[in-house]
Amino acid sequence: MREHPICTPSEPRPQHEPFGRELVALLPRLRAFLRNLQRGAPLPVDDLAQEALARAWRSRAAFDPARGAVDSWLLRIAFRAFLDHRAERPTEPLVDDRAAAEPGPAATAALREHCERLLALLDARERHALLRFHRDGRSIAQIAAETGWPVGTVKSLLHRARAKLWAREHGDEP
């Protein structure tokens, strides 16, 4: 059984309690980040979040607010935990029950709705290039041959489409 990382009885409470609360407040974001990292193989999201919080708590003395925000610091620790997990279990990931469950109609509808929201951010040519590449598995050269667009144009459309999706996440940040 794991010891709760935040409530270690031997620690002087007044000094560390605010920091602990800050870490706990970041837990939803931490879990969302880890869930987004899972691709193909489901991740033990709760275990990894717990591991990240434990590592953050152990190395709390190394945190320097002048070097960056606590959320970036915590996400880097979680990313390291995720990479360690991948390295330890490259072919045998633990299974998060919810992620392993067969997607039902509601999940499929939610996925479609999500994708349509993403695609609405793009213009028609960017959307076409992105779908042909990432959904249909076509290469850039194949898309160019299909559409008659130069290879450089297809690449540029793909880059613009991805950049828009990337900027969406940055835009959501507070």
Binding site: L37, A69, L118
Partner: peptide
């Protein structure tokens, strides 16, 4: 690390597109 959420989200979004049925969008 400030780019980690954007990276994870982009990776998830591209994976979602790959799982989407061809007729969906």
């Amino acid at each position: 690390p400030e780019c980690l959420p954007a990276f994870a989200t982009l990776r998830a979004d591209l994976a979602a597109l790959g799982e989407m049925a061809p007729t969906a969008a």
